[in-house]
């Protein structure tokens, strides 16, 4: 099935959604046991742009993000319904191996979680795993390139064999980003990547996100409206498991259509 056909089938959203979505989510419901965390989510994620997900705590942003690389599979009682297409291929129902999916859709977590290995081995983990490099030289090159792209190379090039857990929080988070981009994913999911960091480290990561946008499609969950406004082109506002409003970031923040969005971004609740 070609992606064009697929998109025709689903093109019901008339909002200013990008012309070529990388990911299309239709009618996605997620249940944790009996309780429903996401209700009939429809959302398009544009290629090579940054989409930010905002909303009050517990509204299902992380849950939605984890749907996109099937990390919800790891959670025991979690059930996902509906369709999510990546480049026109249904990632849940087409027999796509989640392992291969995750190689294409990378993820950066809220808390930096480097492996207790050396900095080098942290970045080399993915390429070694997927056999995408054939020899040590290529691997070295890949590690250096990833660290450079993550803006960490200059800080760690002299201590690649030191443990990644010995870096500062901001460096660790950039190491995790380097680790994620080392396998050349198409999409990078970030779940509040700056919430454990100070303003300077945050600024570095935001810069980095802007840089990465050229190559990757990025979805970022954030609690900071300013951050969403700074880094993203599209913003989706989640509320109680639903997408209330989605649109161009500028428009959503300056003239929100929905009262709940208005309330949230002006700080009346959430």
């Amino acid at each position: 099935m070609s992606s064009a056909m697929d998109m025709q089938n689903f093109n019901i959203i008339n909002d200013p959604i990008t012309s070529e979505p990388k990911i299309i989510a239709r009618d996605v419901n997620v249940f944790y046991g009996a309780s429903q965390a996401l209700k009939s989510i429809n959302l398009d994620i544009g290629a090579n742009e940054v989409t930010s997900l905002i909303g009050p705590s517990g509204c299902g942003k992380s849950t939605f993000l984890r749907c996109l690389n099937r990390m919800n599979d790891v959670i025991e009682n979690c059930m996902v319904e509906g369709r999510i297409n990546l480049d026109g291929i249904d990632i849940y129902n087409s027999g796509l191996d989640p392992v291969l999916l995750r190689a294409r859709v990378g993820m950066v977590f809220q808390k930096p979680n480097p492996f207790p290995k050396s900095i080098y081995d942290n970045v080399a983990y993915g390429p070694k795993l997927h056999g995408t490099v054939s020899n040590k030289d290529e691997l070295d090159e890949r590690v250096e390139k990833s660290l450079r792209r993550a803006g960490l190379w200059d800080e760690v090039k002299d201590r690649l064999d030191k443990p990644g857990t010995g870096l500062s929080g901001g460096q660790q988070q950039r190491l995790c980003i380097a680790r994620a981009i080392a396998i050349n994913p198409e999409v990078i999911l970030m779940d509040e990547p700056c919430s454990a960091l100070d303003p300077i480290a945050t600024a570095k990561i935001e810069e980095l996100i802007d840089e990465l946008r050229k190559r990757f499609t990025i979805v970022i969950v954030t609690h900071s409206m300013q951050q969403a406004a700074r880094v993203s082109q599209k913003t989706a506002f989640f509320h109680m498991g639903e997408v209330v409003e989605v649109g161009e970031t500028d428009k959503l923040f300056t003239s929100p259509q929905d009262d709940r969005t208005q309330g949230y971004i002006t700080g009346r609740f959430g």
């Binding site: 979680n113 492996f115 983990y125 795993l129």
Partner: peptide, 26 residues
Amino acid sequence: PQSLRDASYAMGATKSETITKVIIPA
């Protein structure tokens, strides 16, 4: 920590790869 397992799964590692390459070394 679960976060290390998550990190490994999110890199596209299978369960057995996660066990041998992350959990046991840690």
